[in-house]
Design a protein around this nucleic acid. Structure first.
Length: 500
RNA sequence: GCGUCCGUAGCUCAAUCAGGUAGAGCAUCCGGCUUUUAACCGGGCGGUUGUGGGUUCGAUUCCCACCGGGCGCACCA
């Protein structure tokens, strides 16, 4: 790090173009041609080739890279320009020309240092390879890793396109609480926190579902929320403790309607982002064009194992079939849970998709409406795309008594030893008592959708700042857990395990 | 959480297998070069080898613990 003081730099700078615009306007001119047109751009100096009486620089802005052709004879403060460091922010004004070797360039008639870098930039060829450094110092990674930059910018586009697509279909975006008194709407361990003034424990939401359906009760017929949810579980290439969920509720629709919505939305996004619905993911191909295959869970199990299962089968018979497939059977597993276990063990990992896996057992679907034809099943589906669950959706359970009974079954499972069950939410039941119309609901893991459309193998490649352990040897901010000075409790950045 | 692999200069990597005072390229600094393309050429600066212990005459290298990370499994979206 340089110990020289920061030189004075301007408070603002006017640009009148950017790299992409210059390339679009002048990219095709002949070698050696001078356009006679002047442009002002700004960005970081990423490469520099000092040739003595000519300096070639390469400036990168958010749209690309362009060469700066700086001869000693015409460049103001040529020595200063030659002395710039890689990574310095500069503004450049000059004529747009193409060099004899055919490189579109700006020949500066003026240039300004906008911000010096006091730390050396990573190797100009290799960039950053250490994943830890990439994620911790994303502000550098974004400059030196084009693939990271592209994926993260595409994330923004995907969110924007999704909002527009839904709004075009009369869905309105809402924001529901992130602090929940009961962590419900999904089966996951929550993060706990505490509100001092109210002196109550709160949970960061694990899903917005129950609040969104309250809004449907309230007459918001088409709503969606795109927001962060928090689950206190392991971290992996597919899991970040905070991740983004798209949830949507559509009054008067059922799960068939939602399937159509999903395949149309996803193929639209693929078209916009990838330019095609036949995309590459890893070393395989995937055809996202609608319609996607629909198949029931039980049929898919039959396809992959030859087992002809039914939700009506005797529990012990299913348990023994499950054991045959290597499922570790717990006492409280009923027929529905056993079928799900068999599906996950034998079939799910074999699917590539896209395919809608439909008609989940009621036992494992506490918020889904009973199947209109087959008792014991629900009108629920998940989409498997590129071998992974992309979404979870159903015809919503509308009956308050039934919902209360489902919650109570969950409580019973918790008592029996199941760690992750859905929490009881009595106010939600009360809302249902006012009447939830027939409603189709959907949850999409946005991070995984972005992974799919950007061909990313790790969720960390599509999250700007993934959750990491605190870095040692650098100050990352102290604890603010206590509102009063409490030297006993205020040790570093530790997070208390139990709210106080 | 368990298993496994990794951590050497600001960045990218050598040296570790078979222990003998840590090297290179880039960046940075100095000098040269009027059409370069990761420019090139010459020179300089830069390391308590993640941290702490142990074995040894001697540890980047072997052993232990801890810290951080990758991958796999488990859990999920």
């Amino acid at each position: 790090m340089s110990d020289s003081p920061t030189p004075s730099v301007p408070y603002r700078f006017d640009v009148d173009s950017n790299v992409a615009a210059l390339q679009a306007a002048h990219g095709e001119i002949a070698d050696g041609h001078e356009t006679g047109q002047t442009a002002t751009i700004a960005g970081r100096l990423m490469l520099k080739r000092d040739q003595g009486k000519i300096v070639f620089g390469v400036v990168q802005d958010s749209t690309g890279r362009i060469q700066i052709f700086a001869p000693a004879k015409t460049t103001p403060d040529f020595e200063g320009f030659a002395g710039l460091n890689l990574g310095d922010w500069i503004g450049v004004t000059g004529e747009v020309i193409k060099t004899r070797r055919g490189e579109l360039s700006i020949r500066p008639s003026a240039w300004t240092l906008l911000a010096p870098t006091r730390r050396p930039f990573p190797d100009k060829w290799h960039g950053i390879t250490d994943p830890d450094t990439k994620y911790r110092q994303r502000y550098v990674d974004l400059w030196v890793s084009p693939e990271a930059n592209d994926a993260l910018r595409n994330r923004s586009r995907i969110l924007s396109l999704t909002r527009r697509w839904l709004e075009d279909r009369d869905f309105i975006e809402v924001e529901t609480p992130m602090f929940h008194h009961v962590a419900s709407g999904a089966m996951a361990r929550p993060f706990a926190t505490h509100h001092n003034a109210l002196d109550i424990d709160l949970f960061l939401r694990i899903a917005p579902e129950l609040y969104l359906k309250r809004l449907t009760v309230g007459g918001f017929e088409r709503v969606f929320e795109i927001g962060r949810v928090f689950r206190n579980e392991g971290i992996s290439t597919r899991h970040n403790p905070e991740f983004t969920m798209l949830e949507l509720y559509w009054a008067y629709a059922d799960y068939h309607d939602v399937m159509e919505l999903v395949e149309n939305l996803v193929s639209h996004l693929a078209m916009e982002i990838c330019g095609t619905t036949t995309i590459a993911y890893g070393d395989r191909e995937l055809d996202l064009s609608a319609p996607w295959r629909r198949a029931t869970m039980i049929d898919l199990i039959s396809e992959h194992t030859g087992l002809e299962l039914s939700i009506d089968m005797n529990r012990d018979e299913l348990a023994s079939l499950a054991r045959d497939q290597g499922v570790e059977v717990k006492d409280w597993y009923g027929p529905g849970k056993l079928i799900l276990e068999i599906y996950e063990k034998t079939t799910e990992s074999e699917l590539w998709g896209p395919v809608f896996v439909t008609d989940y057992p009621k036992e494992v679907s506490p918020l889904s409406r009973d199947h209109r034809e087959t008792p014991g099943l629900t009108e629920r589906f998940e989409a498997i795309v590129a071998g992974r669950e992309l979404c979870n959706a159903f015809s919503e359970l509308v009956d308050p008594d039934e919902q209360l009974a489902r919650f109570e079954e969950q409580e019973a499972e918790r008592a029996a030893g199941e760690a992750e069950v859905m929490g009881m939410d009595r106010d939600y039941v009360r809302a249902l008592e006012y009447g939830l119309p027939p409603t189709g609901g959907l949850g999409i893991g946005v991070d995984r959708l972005v992974m799919l459309l950007t061909d990313s193998s790790s969720i960390r490649d599509v999250v700007l700042f993934p959750t990491l352990r605190p870095e040692q040897g650098i100050e990352v901010g102290g604890s603010h857990l206590t509102d009063e000075a409490d030297p006993e409790d205020d040790a570093g950045a530790e997070v208390a395990e139990e709210p106080t």
